[in-house]
């Protein structure tokens, strides 16, 4: 348990508990299970995106397109529903679309050796632009299935409740944890992020792993888009603006190195939760404006990166 490699996660977890505790002492009504549940309800889509992003970053890449893929998913879902498609057909279609989008970007990155940063940037422009091609206005969803899922509250003992989106998010986090640590694909991803050349020389399937990682991220983004559609009940081209930064910040706060090769899904989970707690504290405080969220997240990023730096430097001196 007290292995050095778990220190970043322990710090992230500690910080989450600390912030929650500070909130509980400062504000009445903060310390309740429902506040924690609300964190999950309001950040379900961010959790799902962040899981996909963790894989991409662990593999040594980056995916800037996630926010716009979410917007595109909401837009496609809304317009298909408007044309009378049934929900059980719409959801698989948008999931396939997201996975296909990710596959395309991964293939371009692998085959043509263009930096992931640029390719996913183009993907971000493309997805955002396609939203506007569909419509520049908000499309409201009044489908019975979607509204039902959006309004369903699953009661927990003690009078608390969560939404269906939370269950999806938790399943994704659990699946991400399993894939990352107990499957070949997960191990290959870590190996690829550690050193692509070594992975190639070891005979690992670099090509399929690289493409699959982006495909997985695309799938996660479109799933997050479906959850986001439940949350907003509308399709709009400006949905989830700048979400990619929130996701990257959550992954980094969760202890994943942007160089690749090191990272934990559990850390990402708490990275998202920390961002949620900051927002909750700011809304409880009342007088603070929303831009403080950005400043605090910036400061947290700084602290965590310095911490990682210190830890990895100490590791080096021990080794040498």
């Amino acid at each position: 348990m007290f292995n050095r490699k778990f220190i970043p996660i322990v710090v992230t977890l500690g910080l989450f508990i600390l912030m929650f505790a500070v909130g509980s002492f400062r504000y009445t009504g903060f310390f309740s299970l429902q506040v924690f549940n609300n964190l999950l309800i309001d950040n379900a889509f961010l959790l799902i995106v962040a899981v996909g992003m963790t894989f991409v970053i662990v593999s040594g890449g980056i995916d800037l397109s996630v926010g716009s893929v979410i917007a595109l998913t909401t837009m496609v879902s809304a317009s298909l529903l408007e044309q009378g498609w049934p929900p059980y057909a719409v959801i698989p279609v948008v999931l396939l679309m997201g996975a296909g989008f990710g596959w395309g970007m991964g293939a371009i990155i692998y085959y043509f050796k263009i930096q992931p940063f640029i390719v996913t940037l183009a993907g971000m422009f493309l997805a955002r632009g396609l939203c506007y091609v569909i419509s520049i206005n908000t499309i409201i969803i009044d489908d019975a299935f979607y509204t039902k899922v959006a309004q369903t509250k699953i009661s927990l003992p003690g009078g608390n409740f969560i939404s269906i989106s939370v269950i999806i998010a938790i399943v994704v986090v659990a699946a991400g944890f399993y894939i990352a640590h107990y499957t070949r694909f997960g191990r290959n991803t870590y190996a690829l992020g550690g050193s692509e050349q070594s992975a190639l020389l070891m005979g690992l399937p670099v090509k399929s792993t690289k493409i699959k990682v982006y495909m997985f991220s695309g799938l996660c983004s479109s799933l997050a888009g479906v959850v986001f559609t439940f949350y907003m009940l509308s399709g709009y081209g400006l949905h989830a603006m700048g979400l990619e930064l929130d996701a990257i910040a959550a992954v980094v706060i969760g202890g994943t190195l942007l160089t690749g090769g090191v990272g934990y899904i559990v850390g990402t989970f708490f990275g998202v939760m920390i961002q949620g707690v900051i927002q909750t504290i700011i809304s409880f405080e009342g007088t603070l404006s929303s831009w403080w969220t950005k400043i605090v997240i910036g400061v947290l990023l700084f602290v965590f990166i310095i911490l990682q730096k210190l830890l990895s430097e100490r590791k080096w001196t021990l080794r040498s």
């Binding site: 942007l258 831009w291 950005k294 997240i297 910036g298 990023l301």
Partner: peptide, 27 residues
């Protein structure tokens, strides 16, 4: 001096800087 990766080092200011700009202009 701290030897951070440029992409994250500048990500900090990218995220926080927008907030600072809004703070200066008071939203």
């Amino acid at each position: 001096i701290f030897g951070m990766q440029p992409i994250i080092a500048t990500l900090i200011l990218m995220v926080a800087g927008r907030g600072v700009a809004q703070l200066i202009a008071d939203g």
